[in-house]
Nucleic acid binder design. Structure first.
Ligand SMILES: [Mn+2]
Ligand SMILES: [Mn+2]
Ligand SMILES: [Mn+2]
Ligand SMILES: [Mn+2]
Lengths: 219, 219
DNA sequence: TATAAAATTTAGGTTTGTCTAAAAATTAAT
DNA sequence: ATTAATTTTTAGACAAACCTAAATTTTATA
């Protein structure tokens, strides 16, 4: 039996380990979980006891195979629920995270596979993040940060790195939702801001920060 | 802020109060919640503290207006999720209760009203139980227990009193799902068992127990 | 290498929700 | 009206998950 809190910690450790190859530190986990280092240490002992992580005092942690499976299953649930909320209930992509954060913990035998079927086996969630399949296999997509494009290159929006509602709402306003096409016209050396043109002929100037948080696929 | 446990107690008290007009007793709540009387007493103090129930030591409890609203909202959520699981995900009516028991606690601003819209504003759940609307208003239906029919009367199945998977699966086997038509042919005085005929001409003999747990609408 | 800074763990405590066993109050039965 | 049975509450504990403050260990710096 794995509690909601334990599941959330495993997911946090998974996310940290995705970015950095080395063991996840107590502080990094505390930051991700928005809690204190002391609380994290408490939990790490419990997770190690259950063989969900390898934990060496003062040395950080890594997920075991089992811990990694639990985290992957949780991410699958989270993202499938997000697809449901957007595709079926009509929420926008900036509204669904907190709901999915709760729904991911609902457990039942066939629930997620049935939901997956109902949704048509989506491979990516509303933020462009890949959804692992029932066996835990991931889809990968050829994508780069908008900031790495060279002037003249055309691309389509495939995802975001920053998932904050503020950023997502700003992208909505700019019309840069998933699938939106664009062409990089110019990068201003002064502040690395980007001038882009959309298929409908609009020209936008995007900050360096936007460029570093928007994934695109070069076409 | 109301916890999951508190919500469940309020729902239990609501259910007990539906059947009996008087105050719900500690033992009745303990039975409904499958816990001990001592745990119930603990919780009753907390709920009274939050003005969700009127509680007098040794005298049982009644929901306040606010407590009743919380319970009604919870039942609405539970039953809408059950409709979702059956209508959209293809679960059968005997599989959905435990899942809905978890889903009912997911909280978010528009979630339930959007789900309601997505489902087409259903008035009854997969077990024939009424779904209160967003303002807490209940639909009522003219229905009686099958056991009260007189020979020669025709009726259609509208709901169940016993919600156990065993009973629901037995009804599936008999073809007595929601909406199924039937005619009472005969009641055997010896054990009050019932001989009924279905529209397709089959004849069934149903025990007194079945008759007392199946709601029908006389046609 | 000694010292300072940062990271991590431990110690001790709180809240929620649960339990068993014992005490108290209510209700039923003689 | 007593006594017996039942119901309910209290007392005392426990586990999960969190906290703050203090101690310890590791890492960085002079
Ligand atoms: Mn999310
Ligand atoms: Mn997402
Ligand atoms: Mn149910
Ligand atoms: Mn139901």
């Amino acid at each position: 039996m794995i509690s909601h809190a334990e599941e959330n910690y495993l997911k946090a450790i998974f996310k940290i380990s995705e970015k950095e190859a080395k063991a996840a530190s107590t502080n990094a986990i505390a930051a991700e979980m928005q809690t204190t280092a002391a609380s994290v240490t408490d939990m790490l002992k419990r997770l190690a006891e259950k063989n969900l992580i390898d934990y060496e005092k003062y040395r950080g942690v890594q997920l075991t195979t089992e811990g990694s499976q639990v985290a992957t299953a949780l991410i699958r649930k989270h993202r499938l629920w997000e697809v449901f909320l957007v595709d079926k209930l009509g929420f926008s992509w900036d509204e669904v995270h907190d709901l999915a954060e709760q729904l991911e913990h609902v457990q039942g035998n066939n629930l997620i596979d049935r939901l997956d079927t109902f949704l048509g086996h989506p491979k990516f969630d509303p933020h462009g993040d890949p959804i692992p399949d029932a066996e835990g296999r991931w889809s990968f997509r050829q994508q780069v940060l908008l900031s790495t494009l060279k002037p003249g290159e055309r691309a389509a929006v495939t995802g975001v790195d920053d998932h904050s509602p503020a950023f997502l709402q700003y992208l909505d306003q700019l019309g840069l939702t998933l699938g939106a096409g664009l062409e990089l016209l110019e990068r201003f050396p002064y502040d690395q801001s980007l001038r882009v043109r959309t298929p409908d002929g609009r020209e936008l100037v995007l900050s360096e920060k936007v460029g570093q948080n928007l994934f695109v696929k070069i076409s």
